[in-house]
Amino acid sequence: MKILVIEDEQAILDNIVYALESEHYLVETADTYYSAIQKIQTYVYDCILLDISLQYEQTGLDILKELKQLNKAEGVIIVSARNSLDDKLIGLNLGADDYLPKPFHIAELLARVKSVIRRRKFTGNSYIHAGNLQIDTEQRQILVDGQPFTTNRKEFEVLLYLVTNKNRLVNKSALAEYVWGDHIDGADNFDFIYSQIKNLRKKLKEARAAIDIQSIYGVGYKLFAE
């Protein structure tokens, strides 16, 4: 899987590349409009991460327009520090697949990249596997050893997020933001998240799921598939 990261902030670029490479993606980078255009025209990527606030004459939106003109099939995720609805709407209208506001969590970034690649590459096949667990992201159903595993909406989201970030440490805040969005206020609610995870663990154990959610250093959780 090849991913192009277009980002002019070197430190952020380093973080993204490091995280993607640890998931065994092939990562290429571009930090200017011209190098980005050159690479887009020459190669085919599975996903493009695009910072639309490039500090040059042309913005990331111009790259997006270019992509649309070239009729490329890449999944594009816009990254923006502006976190403005306008950016999001314009970007999505120009054919971007997703929008990721800065600052983001590594787990969030990876989840989005995987989701975009999943949607682009395996059209019709929306299953994710972990141990004896099979998650149908389209139907929003979970099977354990072929048997239906019932969850409520939030439990499904938690599990999907952890499975997507399998073997990675998922920060508690990242999990809270992903699942509960703005309806949760960070550290105040860590106990609540802990109780949710505890319930989920119990449920998984009862269903004999071959996965384990571990609490790591109190920072977050890591899902292991046996």
């Binding site: 973080n15 800065k102 790591i216 920072v219």
Partner: peptide
Amino acid sequence: QTPLAIALNKLELLAENNHLNPSQADLL
């Protein structure tokens, strides 16, 4: 936003390191 994003991500990547002892993990 940008420095925050960088710092947060760096620490998250550091937390992925499996060789932290408990007191280091606490600081992190």
